[in-house]
Amino acid sequence: MRSARARAAGSAVLSLVVVSVLSSCATSNTRGGAGGTGLFGGGSSASVSYISSLQGGIVSRSGIQLSRGDYNKALEAEYRALETAPGGQAVTWSGSAKGEVVANAPYQVGNQNCRQYSHTITDNGREAKVRGAACRNADGTWTPLT
């Protein structure tokens, strides 16, 4: 039987591991704030691959037809919410339509960090809210769970 001291030490180690794993899924936003060019603005094929790995994101399931520009802003907001936003903090975007993406706290599936998230889209007075989940790959891209 383990002593109370050994159990406490084991709990402390487990807590440090959990904090370490959860903090490793958040990265700094090196692409600038809302005033920057965004992931699509620079034309970087690496940036486009991060967005394309979302496979249309959950915005594509909203039933709202967005312009290409609004669709790109919506996908970028989904990526930013998954990659950098603290759990529960909204990432907003706007154009001729507008939206808000909120990712929940990260959780582990196997060796991947995953997050559930929601996306509320408003266009011409019509609102749609869709929910989904995605897991972060070793290369930094996010793949939606189906």
Results as ranks from 00 to 15, higher is better:
55 Q>I: 00
81 A>H: 07
21 V>D: 02
36 G>P: 03
57 G>Q: 13
55 Q>C: 01
17 V>C: 07
90 A>V: 04
130 V>Q: 13
40 F>Q: 04
117 Y>Q: 02
23 S>L: 12
54 L>V: 07
99 G>I: 08
7 R>F: 04
37 T>Q: 12
72 N>I: 00
146 T>M: 04
38 G>T: 01
97 A>L: 10
141 T>F: 09
121 I>N: 13
125 G>Y: 10
89 Q>L: 09
74 A>N: 03
136 R>I: 00
37 T>L: 13
71 Y>N: 11
87 G>L: 04
12 A>C: 05
15 S>W: 09
119 H>W: 09
141 T>P: 06
99 G>Y: 10
140 G>N: 12
108 Q>H: 01
91 V>S: 01
113 N>R: 12
85 A>P: 06
124 N>H: 15
62 S>M: 13
24 S>A: 14
4 A>Y: 07
104 N>I: 00
80 R>Q: 05
92 T>I: 06
20 S>T: 07
54 L>I: 07
146 T>N: 14
137 N>A: 09
22 L>E: 10
145 L>Y: 03
100 E>H: 08
119 H>K: 06
58 I>R: 11
74 A>Q: 02
59 V>L: 02
96 S>C: 08
17 V>Y: 04
121 I>Y: 15
105 A>Q: 06
35 G>T: 09
53 S>Q: 14
82 L>M: 08
137 N>Q: 15
39 L>A: 13
96 S>R: 13
33 G>I: 04
47 S>G: 15
121 I>D: 14
128 A>D: 09
94 S>H: 10
98 K>N: 13
63 G>Q: 08
111 N>P: 01
14 L>A: 15
48 V>M: 14
134 A>K: 04
97 A>R: 10
86 P>A: 14
35 G>F: 05
47 S>C: 14
109 V>N: 06
142 W>H: 01
120 T>M: 13
39 L>K: 09
145 L>P: 02
88 G>I: 07
137 N>S: 11
70 D>T: 02
124 N>L: 13
12 A>F: 06
133 A>C: 05
119 H>F: 11
72 N>E: 09
106 P>W: 09
61 R>T: 09
51 I>G: 00
81 A>I: 06
101 V>Q: 01
78 E>H: 03
6 A>K: 13
19 V>E: 11
138 A>S: 12
28 S>I: 14
118 S>C: 06
48 V>D: 13
109 V>W: 03
70 D>V: 01
115 R>Y: 05
52 S>N: 15
104 N>S: 12
111 N>T: 07
86 P>E: 14
143 T>C: 01
2 R>I: 10
36 G>Q: 11
70 D>H: 04
110 G>K: 12
144 P>A: 01
89 Q>F: 10
64 I>M: 10
80 R>D: 01
84 T>W: 14
122 T>Q: 08
104 N>Q: 14
112 Q>G: 00
107 Y>K: 00
99 G>T: 08
42 G>V: 10
104 N>L: 05
130 V>C: 15
144 P>M: 03
35 G>P: 02
53 S>W: 06
41 G>N: 05
73 K>V: 03
136 R>G: 00
21 V>T: 07
127 E>T: 15
113 N>S: 14
68 R>V: 08
11 S>V: 06
58 I>D: 03
136 R>H: 02
46 A>Q: 15
89 Q>S: 15
115 R>C: 02
104 N>T: 05
60 S>A: 15
15 S>A: 15
29 N>E: 07
29 N>F: 04
9 A>W: 11
76 E>W: 12
91 V>K: 00
132 G>W: 00
31 R>K: 15
15 S>I: 02
